[in-house]
């Protein structure tokens, strides 16, 4: 039991940090520009594919740097030449633009790399068990992922609080109009944030793509889970996104272990109903089956009862 709790904690931490890497950029984009970027997961996928392609030529490590930069440049271009021209048509058009973009990116990825998964593998140097705790291996690569994501969190935190551009971004998060009145180049900041956010997603793709699977549907697979993070975390709050990521990681991880269903619960009280039809299905469901859909329930309830999110400064 102890080992199970220990490893589930590590698992939830890791999954949470991966979620955070994805959602940190999205939170910035969403809070500043009001765009629900449906193509964010596509940048995650592009990060993985770029890293795979680069690793074919020069190995994993250069890819770790180059791939996110490429994705960032691509993101900036998308903002400059795509989103900005759609901006005048309003938020719905911007959002639908990103939906269409996600769609096209998937098709283009298939055209270039084919429909099957590409063999993007963990670098040999990190492919070993670092320590064995309570009988379970902790692989070096997972520790590496954890280190990269924590490093990214610290870096992001420093940029936002210590640098000039970070302060402008912070201000634009809450008062975008005020910032532009003060004479700052808000479109330029938008481009930077969109590019930077995409690069962060790309970095998550580089280190997540080989841990998971690099395939054309990986963006769609990831689905709207990142939106859950930004809603639960709250508008404009990186700390909120951080907490929400870890929380969601924990919910999903620990729910798996709870193999209790409603009928078990009723049995505790000596009730053993034998229903049929819909009720039977309902009583049969174990908490563990619901792990991956709990976040959505969480998101809907959050939006209904606390639309500010956990740490939000204003309503979504």
């Amino acid at each position: 039991m102890l080992e199970y709790i220990f490893f589930s904690t590590i698992n939830s931490l890791l999954y949470g940090m991966l979620l955070f890497m994805l959602s940190s950029g999205l939170t910035l984009i969403f809070s500043m520009m009001g765009i629900l970027n449906f193509a964010h997961a596509s940048f995650f996928m592009l990060g993985a594919y770029f890293a795979y392609q680069i690793s074919q030529f020069v190995g994993f490590w250069p890819g770790l740097v180059i791939a996110p930069l490429l994705v960032g440049v691509l993101g900036a271009l998308v903002e400059r030449y795509g989103l900005r021209s759609v901006h005048k048509h309003g938020h719905v058009a911007e959002l639908l633009f990103t939906v269409g973009l996600a769609y096209l990116i998937e098709e283009i990825v298939m055209l270039i790399w084919g429909r099957n998964a590409v063999p993007y593998q963990i670098p040999n140097i990190l492919d070993f068990a670092l320590v064995n705790i309570l009988g379970t291996d902790l692989s070096a690569y997972r520790v590496f992922m954890l280190v990269v994501s924590i490093g990214m969190f610290i870096f992001l935190f420093l940029v936002l609080t210590r640098s000039r551009i970070g302060l402008i971004i912070q201000a634009a998060l809450t008062h975008p109009d005020g910032v532009s009145t003060l004479g700052h180049n808000v479109p330029g900041v938008f481009m930077l944030v969109f590019g930077g956010g995409s690069a962060l997603a790309g970095l998550a793709g580089v280190i997540g793509g080989n841990y998971l699977i690099t395939e054309p549907s990986m963006a769609a697979h990831l689905g709207p889970i990142v939106f859950v993070v930004i809603v639960v975390g709250g508008m404009g709050s990186l700390t909120g996104a951080f907490i929400a990521s870890l929380l969601l990681g924990a919910i999903q991880t620990f729910a798996v272990g709870v193999q209790v269903s409603l009928s078990d619960l009723l049995a505790l009280f000596g009730l053993t109903p034998e229903p049929s039809g819909l009720l039977k299905d309902f009583l049969r469901i174990q908490i563990s089956h619901t792990g991956p859909i709990l976040p959505y329930l969480f998101m809907v309830l959050m939006l209904i009862f606390r639309p500010k999110g956990l740490m939000g400064k204003r309503e979504t």
Binding site: S276, K280, D281, I285, L303
Partner: peptide, 26 residues
């Protein structure tokens, strides 16, 4: 309205789609 509505509709869509496989009797 606006984004909160869009996100709730997304969440409800996910929930119903996921439960469609959990409630085979319906």
């Amino acid at each position: 309205a606006g984004t909160p509505f869009a996100l709730i509709s997304l969440g409800i869509g996910e929930l119903i789609a996921a439960s469609s496989l959990m409630f085979p009797s319906f």
